[in-house]
Design a binder for these strands. Structure first.
Lengths: 198, 198, 198, 198
DNA sequence: GCGTAAGCGAGACGGTACGTCATGTCTTTCA
DNA sequence: TGAAAGACATGACGTACCGTCTCGCTTACGC
């Protein structure tokens, strides 16, 4: 007969303080060092207030990420697919280097063992992927993208390289990284048939 | 003046038992539930025997991964780049679905907060990337790959989609996944200029 | 600038419910398990209503004890000291076995660490002792009690054995316990000089 | 399948530190403020080390009391009952005023709600009562004590007044308190038949 | 071939964080 | 505006692992 609390009576100040404190901690000391105790202490809040509203620290960080996502516009659509993809992926690359990147990295970790985090992460990814696929569908209509390509796969080809380099930390990425990646995946890795005499 | 122990007198049985127990646990209950205590208990070993030879649970799992890697041959080279890439990436996709995949996932998590794990993971990745780049370099010589492409980026384009789908668990992958990905990234996402009349 | 509430507007029903609930809980689950939350829940009352009118759970139980005391007459005075003492101590022994006994035991515990409870308990004890001493003083006048005896000490000698057995729970007491105690302390523990031939 | 720890491997220093810290805390801040956390902190010990060996804070204090009891000799027997009783009760009165008194008071409180404490307290009391009754039995043989008196009751009459005054804190006791009490209970509260002309 | 020193299993140790509970205060809602 | 409801900050609870340590036991090397 466990009762869930009444959201109307919730203290909004505490809520903000908790989410902010969690994200700051994550950026400063890394996800592993974020503990409910530390969040509570930094937010000036009782531990119970965290446990009352969130099932885990990952859930708190999820709320932060969702908030960040709302601040960002959706997938851009200027009519030029190449430009739109560059805009979006460059924004993502910038996000990966920000505080939100640290939080997102932590959530991807948490999602490996915490079902709540996994669901939240899945939802965020899903949303991003759906938006991307909508833009790509339109691009197939305007003949900017191969119409025989599976869109999930296209998404993975476009975002995969960036995630690979960021998550696996194999090397630092140049600012223009995604510009080159996009050129390469759109043109293909095969040598051009005949470098046209021009 | 801390003394490191004498490797000659090391008990090889314990070593095997520990590494195996750690990997099994990882596959069965997930990386987060793998604790030094649990490894010691399952291996029938004292905790100190683990701490004596490994700095952390991640180091134990690293040893397992290195062992797995040794069992696998290096990057294949049949002279046919497309075939070799397919062989290698398909093997990787199969590995991701095996016990070693669970371990590798755990190590990628641990690498985010544990420097020892990060170094080990980096080394394993480095080795794989170097081997891949060597094969790709040769392919550039045989005109199977654009010679103007940055090889790190090519590696990320080839392996990125697989890691994206596996690590972020966005969807189950079909068996032939990498076959299609390779076709697409080699031909490019752009619509073919004129489907040549042939 | 803390405002104390207006007693005129007090809800008498809540008051009764709280005091009764507290005493019942004390008898049923013991003093340690009596919590303000439990009292409030059982009385169908908000916690604040308790904190508004009483400083602690002990204060609620004190009100119960004071009420019980009012229901009992004062120290009896029939002219026969022995009979009056027996009446009074037997009533006390009966009270110790009742719900009020559980409450009284709890208050004696609380008095060890709670100043409010200590003061209340002291007042109740004081009142009982003063009444007893008044009766004893009269008895000294009628030569029923040694006139050289310190009355505080006499009170302790009469009530001490009962409290000893009840509080320390060393053994169950027979119904006629106080009858024998009184006989013994009045006659003295020394063997009678010469059992008079009579 | 819970394992109880091996007493042979127990750290005697920690044990002493814990028992001493608990008793000191009890004397300084009172039983209610003694917490396992505070004991652990003051003893410089992990909480688990306390929980490993004792079921509750009361059990720690019990060990202290048992230790104190061992330091005290048993019931004295000089052949003079009055003198022996005075010796013993005076020692008890002194103990009530010492640190051990604070601990004993705490244990009597704990015994009201904690079965472990209750059993321990009962055992300590039992031992004291048995010793007292043995001495009293002998005294009945030497005609120093009424042979028709129930010895449990005699114990309660002798120790009851002291416990009454100490536990209920009704008044401060003079040094010679027990001397007067003993005189009174042995001679009886009744006025002497004929104040002998002498 | 025997003493000694190391590795071993076991597990107690001082700690940190966990998630739960009750406290006493404060705020919101309703009669 | 008093009372119900209940969210809040606080802090102790008892548990799980952490990484260090100290025990006896056994193993294997070197005199």
């Amino acid at each position: 007969m466990s009762r869930q609390p009444d959201p109307n009576r919730r203290n909004e100040q505490s809520r903000q303080a908790i989410v902010t404190a969690a994200a700051d901690l994550c950026a400063e000391v890394g996800f592993a060092a974020v503990t409910v105790e530390a969040i509570a202490a930094r937010a000036g809040v009782g531990k119970q207030t965290i446990y009352r509203w969130w099932p885990s620290k990952a859930a708190v960080l999820l709320e932060y990420m969702e908030r960040e996502r709302e601040r960002a516009a959706g997938f851009p659509d200027t009519g030029d697919l190449a430009a739109d993809l560059l805009t979006q992926t460059t924004a993502l690359q910038r996000l990966f280097d920000s505080d939100a990147g640290a939080v997102w990295r932590g959530l991807l970790i948490a999602a490996q063992s915490d079902d709540v985090a996994a669901d939240g992460v899945r939802a965020l990814l899903e949303q991003a992927i759906v938006e991307a696929k909508q833009r790509l569908t339109k691009a197939q209509g305007t003949d900017e993208l191969r119409s025989d390509a599976d869109l999930d796969m296209v998404v993975e080809i476009i975002f995969g390289p960036l995630y690979h380099a960021w998550l696996l930390r194999t090397r630092p990425l140049p600012k223009a990284y995604m510009s080159d990646v996009l050129k390469l995946v759109f043109e293909g890795l095969k040598p051009r048939d005949r470098p046209l005499i021009r």
